[in-house]
Design a binder for these strands. Structure first.
Lengths: 111, 111
DNA sequence: AGAGTCTATCGTACATCGACGATACATGTT
DNA sequence: AACATGTATCGTCGATGTACGATAGACTCT
């Protein structure tokens, strides 16, 4: 307890970003770790890290999953902010959001 | 792809520990991150880190959850190896498995 | 022995995940 | 205009997660 809860008198806003309360920290970290809480999503992230960018179709080719399933996993990864999709119709070029990944790494490291 | 898959001719055993294939890496990381993929479990882990050890009852007191629910989360954390429970009947003293936590941190950092 | 304390497990109910095929949508090509 | 391509979404199904109350098990203490 009391890892920071006592130092934040709720002054204005942005306090949360400075001294993250336990609850907010937990929700943030849980959301990001949940994005990686499936082997398929971990593999997708690594794929994107290796290639720096990747078409959706290439990801599907590398995975033993249906296209719709991969698309669902990509949607989850997008919602958590870990990946971004540049639309280049009809293709979509996915890439890692390094900022979000860094945040995840920091949150885990700060455990 | 091919982050290590090509260098492991399946010589004997223990090869997995040296050059983790993508699939195994993904499953390992997914399992560990899944343990943290719920705010309640993140809070439990932080609680244990702050106190170095903790009775189950104390955890329940800190959380807005029923005792049985907390027990379930603790079971998950035990199954993934992140926490250990020393039985001191009828109480149980939970503590962090720092080795498992270090492994999680390394896997995330190596992303 | 009997009562009290602490934790785990059971049973249940609801929500969500994860997988798929089918289909819709947007764009480029013939 | 018709077609082909690449992706997202829908609908569905089974499996699993999350929550709770109730109950069982294992000690301690009186």
């Amino acid at each position: 307890m009391a890892r920071s809860k006592d130092v934040s008198p709720k002054c204005d806003a942005t306090a949360e970003e400075l001294t993250l309360p336990d609850v907010a920290f937990a929700e943030d970290l849980a959301k990001l770790t949940w994005a990686l809480a499936h082997p398929a999503r971990v593999r997708i992230v690594r794929l994107l890290l290796d290639r720096t960018s990747c078409m959706c179709g290439e990801i599907v080719d590398e995975m033993p999953l249906a296209q719709s399933t991969v698309s669902q996993h990509l949607k989850i990864l997008k919602e958590t902010g870990l990946v971004q999709g540049e639309i280049d119709r009809p293709r979509v070029c996915y890439c890692i959001n390094h900022q979000a990944l860094a945040k995840l790494k920091k949150l885990v490291a700060d455990l």
